[in-house]
Design a binder for these strands. Sequence first.
DNA 1: GCACTTTCTGGGAACGTTCACAGAAGCAAC
DNA 2: GTTGCTTCTGTGAACGTTCCCAGAAAGTGC
Lengths: 338, 338
Amino acid sequence: MDSTRVRRRRATINDVASAAGLSRGTVSRVVNGEKYVSPEAKMAVESAIAQVGYVRNSAARNLVRQESRAIGLIIHEPHSLLFEDPNIGSILLGANSVLSAADYQLVSLIIDTARDSRRVADYLRGGLVDGAVIISARTSDPIATAVRNLKIPAAFVGHPPGTPDIPYVGIDNVAAAQTIVRRLLDTGRTRVGMIACALDRDSGQDRLEGFRTALGPAFDPDLVLEFPLYTYAAGADGMAELLRRRPDIDGVFAASDAVAAGAMATLQEQGRRVPDDVGIVGFDDSSWALRCKPQLSTVKQPADLLGRAAAELVLAQIEGNEAEVRMLNTSVVWRESA
Amino acid sequence: MDSTRVRRRRATINDVASAAGLSRGTVSRVVNGEKYVSPEAKMAVESAIAQVGYVRNSAARNLVRQESRAIGLIIHEPHSLLFEDPNIGSILLGANSVLSAADYQLVSLIIDTARDSRRVADYLRGGLVDGAVIISARTSDPIATAVRNLKIPAAFVGHPPGTPDIPYVGIDNVAAAQTIVRRLLDTGRTRVGMIACALDRDSGQDRLEGFRTALGPAFDPDLVLEFPLYTYAAGADGMAELLRRRPDIDGVFAASDAVAAGAMATLQEQGRRVPDDVGIVGFDDSSWALRCKPQLSTVKQPADLLGRAAAELVLAQIEGNEAEVRMLNTSVVWRESA
DNA sequence: GCACTTTCTGGGAACGTTCACAGAAGCAAC
DNA sequence: GTTGCTTCTGTGAACGTTCCCAGAAAGTGC
């Protein structure tokens, strides 16, 4: 209660040693579970540890061992996405499960301001982590170049344009977009538009590219709208504009499920039936997809596998192996919206 | 490319010192921006740092300074919520902004398995952080008792039942629930039910308590349904059951906006008009609230302020001040759903 | 020339571990 | 009794910083 500024010194290994009547070395061996320590010594040390309330100081340990057994995961997202993007949580959990099994601690660092960016870079460089996973780095991301300069084991989730020499994991957004758009065409749609988002990232650019190539000569640049972020609002506004430009539109590729949900709301408000009048497909297979009526046809993105693969890439580099780019498979989930 | 296992030793402060022809002490003073170092020495050190590629080793620094200037933020959520709960992101960003301003690094640690729980406890105890914020700890949470035993500066977001002696920040869920439910009554509803969730947390329990007391003698335990988590599905299923039990129900308090959205979907499917036939109110003012048609009346929870306040509580304790519980104000956002 | 202050630099000690090595003790084999 | 092996323990050195003190150098005032 009255913690009068005493701030009692933490017990050290030496305190344990003298309490147990043994040496530092023996205590260390017990703490680390090494062999060659007698049963009596072990018991004496253990009760001494309990008595003085010893816990090992990690800073000292990391210093001498020259490793931290921690991996940083850098989240660099605009506010709105940190709240809505369901993939981030899955990536986090996927990475955590791999690292946890390898006895590494995952520490997540979020970057919100330029000040954060500098502080996080310092954190990474200081040796407090043995490696890093960076998710959704965008073009000319300062942290991306920082990590490259540091030369610590690192992997990106998603390929940041313009940084060719850092290993990453990702999905083939072009092929996935092609597949789902082609199926839209196969079901007879001829006037197909796209609500594109986040063209400052590989995912946004590649989905658009997949759309363009799937349509081939039927591609009409006038039916492609661009928005900065994957949001419900982008879908709602984009759809309204598409209807204005082309009232007889009969198919839409939304760059994400949230976007698709927004588009569907606008359509239904204006009295169009989905999928009868207009077919919609999304991307992500997030909870949005099931929440829509009719439910969305979409591309399932293996977010947790991305997290796992990125973690594995970092661990491989720590073990001195060559890290190679990993592309994961997506699959189309065919529901009722198209 | 062929990084043949060399793992070149990192440059230390001594390498800088000899490259600059100065002493360790002077280099340290330059690195830490202290006064009493001559302009020439400063320049020599700076160019030597660039030349040998020196970066400070944080483990060594933390060891001697006995602090890390990092605060842990422990996220202990079931999978489903980590993806959907919009409050978590806001809390994170709120805490980060306070800590960033105070030049502390926020490190988030997620707990998914029992193994994680132990590892995170070790991380906290090892001195790698100077304090901790714990969000959404539930009854009998192992990490909650662990933190208490460690006696490191800590604060909870939300009051974990059964751990009275740890400071926390929260909102008055009872009063907020009372306010919004009372308004439901004031607009003439007489047969009002509740879809309650997460009774293993203070938020779930207190919202139910607020509902009960607001209704007073009109309270009918038969019109309260309980679900484990705040989910859309709970709302959809709960509403269906309420309609079965009481077909002429005319008001519903959903324990969260996601729950309310599910309930609204069920109602509309069954041909009930909102708010004309049945009024609905939610809790959180999350993106769900605006996504519903009609939009939800709900309680606005200042998630980012909760994060900020929790961070401030931890910093206060680090500075040796008494930490006191902080309750933040909520406000009712009145829209069209009731 | 002397005393005093201010500015600047160097280096010993400490932070709390782990690691490597030396050596003691016990036992078995000859 | 000597040799050799295994088990167990203690201790010096190292990890890379920061802190503190001593002292040099330079400036100021008499």
